[in-house]
Structure formats: C-alpha cells, structure tokens
Design a protein around this nucleic acid. Structure first.
Lengths: 209, 209, 209, 209
DNA sequence: GATGAATGAGTATTCATTCAT
DNA sequence: AATGAATGAATACTCATTCAT
C-alpha cells in the first residue's frame, strides 16, 4: 500500500490491464527462475504483489498464464516482423529475411531466460497455431512477402514454402537462444539462418518441385 | 530439474533388461494417451504389470523415464541415420540427405502419438545435447558427411553447418509430425525439407560466409 | 455455527423489504438448483441482480440466508395452520388434523425442489425451536387445539403430546415430499398421516400413560 | 509407531479393515466435535493417526466418510432390530414395537453427539434409502412383523404402513436425541413413541382406509 | 529382487467477506 | 446505500517416493 497521492479512482479498464500486466510479468519471472514445475499460482501472486484471488479473477487457471505469455510472445514477434516489413528501406527478399531474423534474435535477447523456458518446456503449448491470432498474422505476413517475390523464388507452393520458412526460422532462432553455440557469435548464427532460408527460397541446382 | 537423471543401475541380466523394456513401453503408452500431466509412476507401473517399487529399481525418478524414452528415441534416429549412411548405394550429398530425411520421417510414423507428446511437451527435455551419447553420435556422423562433401558445399564452418542442418532437419520433421499440414502429403513435405537443407548447403548467390 | 444468525437490520422501507425478498428468492432458486454445496453468496447476488455488498447489507453471513429461508418457511406453515384453525367450519379434532395435514402437504407442493433441499440438507438448521418465533407459535397453536379436545384424547401430558404430534406430522410430511412413495398417491399418504396422529391421540387399548 | 512386539505381518484384510475402522472412528469424533463444516480430511487423518493418503486409499472423497458412517449407523440399527425380533420371548405386536423403540433409543444414547450431527446435518445424506442395504433390510424386517400381525392391525396396505411406522419411529427417536425435551425423561418419550405407533396400527374409531 | 501399502509435502482453486469508491 | 474488485485463509486431493515384508 503506497501512501503516494494517486488519482482516487483509476479507470476500470486501465486498472485491469495493469493488473494483468503485473501478473504476467511475475509469471514470466517465476517461470524463468524456476521452470514450469517450480511455478505455482500462489508464488506468482506473491511476486506480483497481488492476492491469489486476483490472479484467478483474470486467469481461469494456471495454464492460462502460460498460454497468455505465449500469446504475448507471439504478438511481440508479429510486431517485430511487421515493423521490419513496414519499413521504407528498399531491400530485396534476402534483405527482408535478414532484417527479420535479426529482429527476432534481438527480441529474444531481451529476456533470454524466459524464452528459454518458454520454448524449452512448451514450444507448442496447447495453442494449435490455427487458434493463435498472432501466429495467423505472422503466417499471412510472410506468405505475402513470398508472394511479392514469387518470381525470384523456387518453391511453387507458397503455403508450403511459408510453413517451411517459418518452422526453420523459429526453430533456429530458438535453438540459438536455448543452446548458444559455444564457439560462434550471434552474428554468425544469424548469417547461417539467413543462408538457410535464402538457400531454400532462391533455389539450388538439382532440387525438386 | 536435475542434470539428466540416469537409470539407477545398468541391467545386466536379460530379465532386468526385459523389465526395463516393459516399463519403458508402458511409459510410452501412458504418455501418448494422457500427456505428461496425466502420467504418473503408479499408473506406469500398473500398465507395465509391475510394482512401483520395481520401477524405482531401474529409474531413480519420474523424469528419468522420460529421459530414457528420449534417449531411446535419439538412439533409434541415430541408428536410422547410420543405416542410411552405411548403405552401399552410391548417392551424392543430396541423395544422402534425402535418404536420411525419408528415414527420419518414416521412423516418426511408427508411434506418432508418442512422438507428438515427446516433442510437443519436451523437445529439449534431455538437456544439453552434449550429454546425450546418441545426439553426440548423430552430430559426428552428419559432420563427417559434410566433411566428405566439403568441396561441394558453401558453408566453411562445418560445426556451424552441422548444427544448422540438424536443427532444421529435426524441427521440420517434428513439425511435420506434430502439425501435419492439411493439404500436403508427406512426400511433398519431405521434398521441401530436402530442398531447404540442400539449398543451404549447396549455396545460392548473394550469400554470406 | 453461531447461534441463529439474524438479518443485520430489519428493513423498514419498502425498497429494503423488496430487496430482501429478491435476495431470498434468488437464494431459494440457487439452493433448489444446486444444493448447499453449490450455493455461494456471489452467485446468489448475481442471480438476484444485486451486488454482493447489498446481500451483506441485509444478511450478516451466508448461513443467515438459509436461516431466513427456514424461518420464512416456518412462518408460511404457521400461517397455513392458523388459517385452518381460524376457519369457521365446525370440525372435530380429527377433522382439524386432517385439514392441517392437507394444508401442509399442499404448501410443500409449491416449491418441492426447494423444500427438498431445505429439509434434506438442513432439517434442524434453524436450531432450537425455542428461538424460532414461528415454531413457537405453531407449538402453542397445536397445544391449544389439543387442550380444546382434552376430553377426547388419551395422552394426559399435553406438552409431550404436542411435541409428538408435531414431530410426527412434520417428519411424515417431509418424508412424503423428499421420497415420494412410488406406488402411493398424496391422498393415501395424507390419510395415513392423519391415521397416525388420530390413532395416537384418540388412544387404543393397552396403551401406557 | 508403537514398539510393542506385534506379529510381523498382520493379515492383509484384517489390517485394511482395522484401518477403515480407525478412520471411521476418527471421522465420527471430529464430526461430533466440529460438525460438517469444521471437519476436513487432513484433520480426520491426523486424529486417526494416519496419513491423509491412507484416508484416500480407502475413501474416495470426504463425503464418502460421512456416507460410510451413515451406513454403519443404519447397520447398527438393523442389528438392534434383528436382535429384538430374533429374541425368543413371546410378545405381542405392541411388545415388539416397545422393545424396538427401546433398543433404538438405547443405541442412540451411546454416542449422542455423533448421532446429533449425523441426523441434524444429513438425515438423508445422499443415500436414497433404496440404495442402502441396511435400510432395505430394516424395511423388510418391519414389514414382515406387520405381516405376522396382519389380523390385528388396521392399515391394509402393508408397504404404506411400514413406511409410516419407520418414518415416525425414526423421526421421533432422532428428535428425542437431538432436542431432548426439558421436562420429560426418556421413559416417557419412549412410551409416547410406542403409543403413537400402536395407536396407528391398532386403529381408532373414525379412521380412514 | 519384488512388492505395494503407507506416507505427507505440495498446490490449484474457491468463496465468504471487506471496504475504497 | 450500493457497488464489485480485491482479499487470502482454508482445504480437498494427488502422486513421487520409501521401506518393511
């Protein structure tokens, strides 16, 4: 209870949103520190400086906390991708991919411990990508990018290509965060990921389809 | 999370080995049916037709069951890869990669439900690959393959290239198993994965490194 | 269990009384639908279209809701009995008893689900009858009836006889409501209850007292 | 943990039964002391000198403890009734009824606090009489008694008569235990109950049926 | 070695109640 | 008076693990 003078009544919605934010942050911290098994709602509440009851006012159960964190993460990634693609710099397909990979790696560097747990323990946490609006958005955005460069790329089936690009990109980014290669810097890893994606898209002799 | 729990004693006698096998099979079945949360040692014991005590004779704790399953899976994948590379047919790098991807996808088709849980809930469960002999073996084997084709491939750092190839290969195979693309057959997916790997290795214009 | 919780304040204004009524009705509905375990003050408030705070304005705690419902029920029964006995038709003792039993059975038919819960889960919830004015009133009224027919009845101790008559009457009425006999209609049950009471009062050879 | 020398291995069944007995006794004690609301499984376990886990080994949930207690009680009442009716003394119908009522009152005197809670809080505790073997047995036994005296009794429908006798008998016995009449001894109450039952059965002028 | 009854620490969740607005 | 967000004590139940037999 702070004694600082505050507006008597914080508007309903803003207050709720702040609470959700606080709870989610606490969840992230606890999760990063102790992993899923070591995380429990009472502890999260305590860390958030909130009562357990309040946690349950906003989240129906423990797992929904993780799901929300996942969705938040996906939304951040979506935002990062959108930001890159909305930029006005003219860059080719490879340039765009490089910028996206760079942005994703950077975004994961913010809270590496959290992302480690998140990806290590629940990469697909009960969130069939179809149901995650953010994942949907990302898929559409990347598909659109490929479409814009349709002429330059080898794969003909854009759905399949988008799937492959996203899977590879995500898994390599996550792998880079989770098990940082002992002898290689992030720059090198970044380069490698881009090479992989560009290599796939821009084709190579003797390939299929 | 302790560091990679190990079986309490290495079974020497056939009987013991059979018991371990029975327990592991039961674990796999339960895990596939009910997921991690629904799996517990007493149930595993019951399903295995064995007492809980016996389970603890061979596995120090619950997680070691999962770890063992993971290691078993890794060993199977290693065996599949070895089998392909030990073959006498002459095939180029791409041919080898194609054969490996094919073998891995096939291996995952055997018990899809189990693999789904295994990868969905604990993709990195077995911790640093350095501690898994099978993963070590796979790494070495693929690195050797790349070495044999050093001249044909673009990446110069073979450690990095091996890491990238393995990460992409595994994640795409797993993704294919976990979320089968609605409109695409396994053959197409297989082709795509090979394209990705070959594209990376065989290079494309404008790449880095 | 505190001793018979009482409404926090006796509502004087019509508005208040209406509120109490609304809350009590909601309580009855919830209780009938979900039983005691499934009933909670927040739900009652919601069903009543009122805030929890308002519930606590009129009822000091959860149990007082039930108590009030019981008291309401007792008052209704008292009213039913009074109505019968205030009637001008000349009927003998047996006629009066028959009319009372009939009225009670009819009163219980109004909201059988509620009465079922009320009697099934808290038959004595409202504690020593001495504290319930309605129960007091009923006792006095029946005792007076017996007194008026003192010459016709066998039992000499009127307090004991009143107690026995009330206990038997109530328990048989409740039993009839809670576990309706599969093969017997209400008319038959009613007849039986009256036979029991009249049999007791009007005596039989070989009895005590 | 007692250090007393005991047979190394108490036979499986006997041991289980003893445990069940201990747990039930503890439940009875706690229930009598604190009522339903104040009773919780951990406390019961502690009082029984047993772990919670053991309680749940034998009882699937909290309510099953109460149900078991109820069933136990019903069985004891059945036994009491059987004992009376199996006696060799020649007594008429009234004599039998008197003996039964006496036995029931006596049985309830053993643990009045428990019976008070049991009847006060859950007279019909989720045990539709149809499902309780003991209650079934009691019904049949009393019905048989009435049948043997068919010629002496007024009611023609024996099912209905048995129901009425049992309801009245039980409710009056319970009422006597729960709210002992201030100015009347047990003997008087007993007499009254018998008068009620006999009055009903043996008929009175002006009755129905 | 095998058994499985017993253990009891650990935790998600509920809900009566309060009180700042 | 009315509101309803916030509180947090309370509790049923689970399950990994042990160990006497």
């Amino acid at each position: 209870m702070q004694a600082l003078p505050q507006p008597r009544r914080i508007p309903r919605q803003a207050r709720s949103r702040a609470l959700v934010e606080v709870i989610l942050e606490a969840t992230a911290r606890v999760l990063a520190e102790r992993g899923y098994a070591g995380t429990n709602t009472n502890l999260v509440a305590e860390r958030a400086g909130v009562s357990v009851g309040s946690v349950y006012q906003y989240f129906p159960n423990k797992d929904s906390l993780i799901t929300a964190l996942h969705e938040q993460h996906a939304a951040q990634m979506q935002a990062a991708i959108e930001a890159v693609l909305a930029g006005t710099q003219p860059r080719g397909l490879r340039g765009h991919l490089a910028a996206i990979v760079h942005a994703l790696l950077a975004a994961h560097q913010v809270a590496p411990a959290l992302h480690r747990v998140l990806e290590k323990e629940f990469p697909f946490f009960d969130a069939p990508a179809e149901q995650s609006p953010a994942d949907q958005g990302i898929f559409q955005r990347i598909r659109q990018l490929l479409e814009e460069h349709r002429n330059e790329i080898a794969p003909r089936d854009l759905d399949l290509a988008t799937w492959a690009v996203l899977q590879a990109m995500e898994s390599l980014v996550h792998a880079a965060v989770i098990t940082p290669l002992p002898r290689h810097g992030m720059a090198q890893v970044e380069q490698t990921i881009v090479d992989m994606l560009a290599g796939y898209l821009c084709g190579a002799p003797g390939r299929g389809a």
